[in-house]
Write a protein that binds this DNA or RNA. Structure first.
Lengths: 116, 116
DNA sequence: GAACTAGTTCGATTACAGTCGAACATACAC
DNA sequence: GTGTATGTTCGACTGTAATCGAACTAGTTC
C-alpha cells in the first residue's frame, strides 16, 4: 500500500508489492511483453504523472485480456491502481522503480515499438 | 559479427544481432529468466571481462537445456560467443549494451537471486 | 583410429503465458 | 428499479518457452 496512511480519498488501492519486495526478474518479465511495455511507455511519456483510467490508453484487446495485462503490471510492482467509482486509476510507480532500478524507466521511455 | 574484420584468431564467432538491431523487449525477455539473469550477472561480476567457456559457470541443468539458454542469450544480443576447439568462449557485450541500454547491466550486477 | 570431451539437434513433454467469449459484479445516472 | 458503463472472473484454447534424454557432431588427445 502507498507509504502514507490511507484516507477516505485514498482508499481503493489494489494490492501491490512493497518497494523492497519488487523483484527485477518480475519487472523484466512484465516489460518483456511489447503490449505492456507500450502501456508503461505511454503513461511515462503522455500521462503527465497523473492518474489515468484504463481506457485513457487504448489497448486493442478484449476487456478480459486488458484485465489480465493490468494485473501483471500491478502485481510486478510497475503500476499502482485504485478504484474510483467505476473506473481504475493507474500510475507508474516512478519513485519506487527509480529507487529500486535506476535508469530502467528511461529505457522504457526511449523504447520504440517495432515497425509493422 | 563483431565490428573489426575477422582474422584467423577471431573466426568462429556465432551469429549475433548487430548493435542497432538489439531489441529492448528481447533483452528483457532473456533476462527475465532467473537462470539466464544469473549467468549474465556471474560473467559481469566474476569473469573479469575476459572470455570464459560455458563450463566456467556451472549451470545445474542438462547439456541440452544449457545449449537452449546460451542460444537465447546470444540471439537476444546479450552474449557474444565463439568456438575455440571444443569449447565455446563467451563474453557479455558490455560495450554494445551500455550504448543501447545505459544502466541496464548495472541492474543485473546489483540483482541477487531469491533465497531458496 | 579409438577414446574422450564439449556442445548440438531433435522430438517430446511439461509449464507458463496470452488470448478471448460469456457471464457476472459493481458503481453511477436517471 | 432500469439502463449503462467499467472491469472481473472463469474456463477453455492457443502459443511460447523451459525442460530433458538420446543420438549425434566435431575437435582434441593419444
Amino acid at each position: 500500500m502507498p507509504a502514507q496512511a490511507a484516507t477516505e480519498s485514498e482508499t481503493g488501492y489494489l494490492p501491490e508489492p512493497a518497494r523492497a519486495e519488487i523483484r527485477l526478474e518480475k519487472v523484466l518479465s512484465a516489460l518483456s511483453d511489447p503490449l505492456r511495455l507500450n502501456i508503461v511507455r505511454a503513461y511515462l511519456l503522455d500521462a503527465g504523472g497523473v492518474e489515468r483510467s484504463c481506457s485513457w490508453f487504448a489497448i486493442d484487446r478484449p476487456k478480459s485480456t486488458r484485465t489480465h495485462h493490468w494485473k501483471v503490471l500491478r502485481e510486478s510492482g510497475i503500476m499502482r491502481q485504485r478504484m474510483v467509482g467505476l473506473e481504475k486509476r493507474n500510475t507508474v510507480r516512478e519513485e519506487d522503480l527509480d529507487a529500486r532500478f535506476p535508469g530502467l524507466l528511461d529505457l522504457v521511455r526511449a523504447w520504440e515499438p517495432e515497425a509493422e
